[in-house]
Design a protein around this nucleic acid. Structure first.
Lengths: 330, 330
DNA sequence: GAGTTTCATGCAACCGGTTGCATGTCAAGC
DNA sequence: GCTTGACATGCAACCGGTTGCATGAAACTC
């Protein structure tokens, strides 16, 4: 059984230093209002007693608790950890703490979390929110909000434009001589999936390349692997997958069928979350989720400081990262 | 520019309902102390005004803020997201929120985070802490602490015993006829690495299998890949790697050298974080990080409720998950 | 019908800080 | 030498809840 140190309060420090409570408070928050020697005396007393300002009490009187919330649909999705990490580092720079929420892809859970967080954070970042526009607007009326990968007028947002990178991917394949490619699609309801599919179609049209869509409902290794027969039966010589995990599944499926990559077939992923850890190393579209996290938090903190809400729409372009799964048409 | 709803306070609700502030408070916290019709009237008034209890104020007077902290060394390490997710779900069940901290593997950062969190959480879970025993003990004196994968007497802890699974791995290899194996080691300072190395040595000794250690200082894809020459030069026919990521690197290195797996060489990972996404699917030792997260939080909440600190040592056994990277000795 | 119990509600202190304003001191200004 | 101003510090109200105790009315007892 370990004893717990009970809280030392500002009053005890004040008594010990022979000053008023307000002076102790000022010694910590506005030291230049006091004589240096007074500050010194207070600090010594505080040190001796092991005083630590009570965050909660401070928050109550100032209304600022130095926390921001970050809500993501699925921490286990490799897209998010870098985003979270970057958000945290950015928050840290301004001495803010991050409340993390995981919604399990459920709008209901997301709503609940927003409500729960609302009281204890100064602002919120919603990454890839699964909520309806109305719910998001409603929440935005309650507290400062910044969105990632969600495009709602009037609410500050950071968007990762995978379109630019996907266009690069198509052009890259066209240059290598491919005349027919497949897009292995992701979830029908996903904003990113729509964005990518449209970008592929338009880029392919201008490059004179034929496109066929093969659906892999869920973005997972298995659905990629299962899609391989459908992909090969189109007669295409290259594919772009909705994300890296799907691409990895396709890669495995191709290997099982002794289709050599990039010799017989070229493959490109999206999000670049696997780094170079597939074999062969996967050519992919960069995702910039790290920057999205950083920018979103920085935007939010700006917002909190200025008090005003500007209608910011911050777009992050992506590009193709060429590795070893793309080659000339066989 | 969006208008923000300014806080509705308990006093406003009290006025509206024609009762005292204390009654409003009780209507929300101890409704059976009041007449049902009074509660009703108060609730209606609260609803009409859009009153939401102020979490901070409540925390100040009760000393309970309903938050627990979780600190991990690296969110991006696939070992942790499931742990975090499970911790969050468990906290959620008791209406607690999780503060997430990421230390970037730095003890200094970890110390800082603990300090920052201390004021706003009721307790803390430290997963794979990089702090010294002394620092951990010091923090434990300040607030309730539960450790994951750190074995310190007197502090409640949840340990994942990879030893059991690793022993299973060695026995599996022995049964397949392998007479000499390699352990591709992880960070020298890691508790898990020590545990795994020792388990391999003792299991190999009892199975009559020779072991050689090849160091891969960092647990990463690249260090695994770079270790392949050293592994092959030992003449061993199988290897166990410190973790799955390292194993994945080894797998890639073997593929580059045209060593067929499992035909010519057998490989086993640890932590089972890659699921079956390598090709061939990786045989690995289960990790149970999800359970560790759940149990740690549940332990912490128990602790908070009971007030007493028991010296709990919760050990999670692991086992071998056989997939396709292990086969009979060539 | 007076005395006692029960119980819903109100009063006021408290949690631990912050902050506008008042006060007191001391030095500069005339 | 008295006024004025600058400035360090104290006083007390406030942030928005919670809670022990007091109060008073209704219900029950004899």
């Amino acid at each position: 059984m370990i004893k717990r140190a009970k809280g030392v309060t500002i009053s005890q420090v004040a008594d010990a230093a022979g000053v008023a409570r307000s002076s102790v408070s000022r010694a910590f928050t506005k030291p230049d209002m006091l004589l240096p020697e007074t500050v010194d005396r207070i600090m010594k007393a505080a040190e001796a007693l092991g005083y630590v300002p009570n965050h909660t009490a401070r928050a109550l009187s100032t209304g600022r608790h130095g926390n921001v919330g970050l809500i993501v649909p699925d921490i286990a999705n490799p897209f998010f950890p870098p985003l979270i990490q970057a958000a945290q580092m950015e928050a840290d720079r301004s001495d803010f703490c991050i409340f993390l929420g995981n919604t399990e892809e459920s709008p209901k859970q997301e709503d609940k979390l927003v409500g729960r967080f609302a009281g204890q954070v100064e602002g919120l970042v919603l990454a890839s929110s699964r909520l309806s526009d109305e719910r998001i607007r409603a929440h935005a009326a309650q507290l400062p909000l910044v969105l990632i990968n969600r495009d709602i007028d009037g609410i500050p947002r950071v968007l990762i434009d995978s379109g630019s990178g996907v266009r690069g991917a198509v052009e890259h394949l066209a240059k290598l001589g491919h005349r027919k490619i497949v897009y292995v699609s992701g979830p029908q309801t996903s904003w990113s999936n729509k964005q990518r599919r449209n970008a592929i179609r338009s880029a392919a049209a201008s490059a004179g390349v034929a496109v066929e869509i093969v659906a892999a409902s869920l973005p997972s290794y298995n659905s990629g692997r299962n899609a391989v027969d459908a992909i090969l039966s189109t007669g295409a010589t290259a594919a772009v997958a909705f994300d890296d995990v799907t691409a990895q599944g396709v890669l495995a499926g191709l290997a099982e069928r002794r289709v050599s990559v990039p010799g017989d077939f070229s493959l490109i992923g999206c999000d670049d979350v696997l780094g170079a850890v597939t074999y062969p190393a996967l050519t992919s579209v960069s995702n910039r989720s790290r920057e999205a996290g950083r920018v979103a938090v920085s935007l939010l903190l700006d917002l909190l400081q200025s008090g005003a809400i500007r209608d910011v729409r911050y777009v992050l372009e992506t590009h193709l990262v060429v590795r070893s799964t793309t080659g000339a048409m066989p």
